[in-house]
């Protein structure tokens, strides 16, 4: 080419651009989680769904329904706690869906995609954040529960197993959140869909009232609900409720195993759809 082009080409490039390596996946993810945690700092009201709301639910259910629902041999308040915790964990789908959807609607997702990082780091970061978010809720509820008389009766091992199942279920629900967050066009749409699905699903179970009183078709539905298996497992492991009645549906007789199976099944079915929806949304 011309002399000036050669001069330009040999001119010192701006401060050695290649003296760094793209970050490993772990650093990408921790950075994404750091970002989400900073958001909480700026908008602490984001945490109301896992602080004020669960405390309110625990107190309302414990004191309003507590008097009229009788669980033979157990205290309703204790029986209630696993139900509310499972509901809160189911809502981690909600949190990841809203957060992801908001990111996808903004220019920042283009910025992330123009960086030498994995697109998956956005998803994994959001997911881990959502588990942290929900865990804050579980912690707040546990403290509230302890204050009104909830206790774990069967020792540390089983107690931890129950918390583990709760987390496992949370991870499965996150895929649902990723699918919804990637598919919906606006956070309002996410809100609408989640409220009209997850919310009733968490009630159509053994979460707040025993399934025995339900019409038989409804009872069957409720007892096959993955939430019911999780709640039943936690109740038995913590000693907060009785074993399933002999006429209860099959899953409730093997609640721990069923919870694991449900979590794996939800993940196996939803994860590929969720990843596909996310890739589609971020490809053009």
């Amino acid at each position: 080419m011309t002399d000036s082009a050669v001069q330009q080409a040999t001119r010192v490039a701006p401060a050695a651009p290649h003296d760094f390596q793209p970050p490993g996946f772990v650093r990408q993810v921790t950075t994404m989680v750091w970002r989400s945690l900073k958001h909480i700092k700026r908008q602490p009201e984001m945490l109301t769904d896992v602080t004020i709301q669960p405390v309110m639910f625990v107190l309302l259910f414990a004191f309003v329904f507590g008097g009229s629902i009788v669980i033979p041999g157990f205290i309703y308040r204790e029986w209630l706690m696993p139900g509310i915790m499972a509901q809160t964990m189911a809502f981690s789908a909600f949190i990841v869906a809203i957060g992801l959807n908001m990111d996808l609607g903004k220019g920042i997702i283009d910025r992330f995609r123009s960086l030498p990082i994995s697109r998956g780091s956005v998803l994994v970061g959001r997911s881990i954040y959502s588990i942290i978010h929900s865990s804050i809720g579980i912690f707040v509820m546990s403290v509230t529960g302890l204050a009104i008389g909830w206790r774990i009766h069967n020792g540390v091992g089983k107690a931890l197993l129950a918390f583990g199942l709760l987390l496992l279920f949370g991870f499965a629900m996150i895929w649902v959140g990723i699918l919804v967050g990637s598919s919906m066009r606006s956070p309002e749409a996410v809100n609408g869909l989640m409220f009209t699905t997850i919310f009733p699903i968490t009630f159509l179970a053994n979460t707040f009232a025993p399934t025995v009183g339900m019409a038989s078709w409804l009872r069957t539905l409720a007892e096959w609900n993955p939430i019911s298996a999780l709640v039943q497992a936690m109740r038995e492991l913590w000693g907060n409720g009785p074993a399933a009645l002999p006429d209860a549906a099959l899953p409730l007789h093997y609640p721990v195993l069923t919870t694991v199976l449900w979590s794996v099944a939800i993940t196996a079915v939803v994860a590929p759809l969720a990843v596909r929806a996310f890739i589609r949304r971020t490809t053009d």
Binding site: F20, G24, R27, Q28, T31, W34, R111, L115, P116
Partner: peptide
């Protein structure tokens, strides 16, 4: 800092 980390800068 966010973008610096995502580029892998120290």
């Amino acid at each position: 800092r966010l973008m610096g980390s995502l580029y892998g800068l120290p």
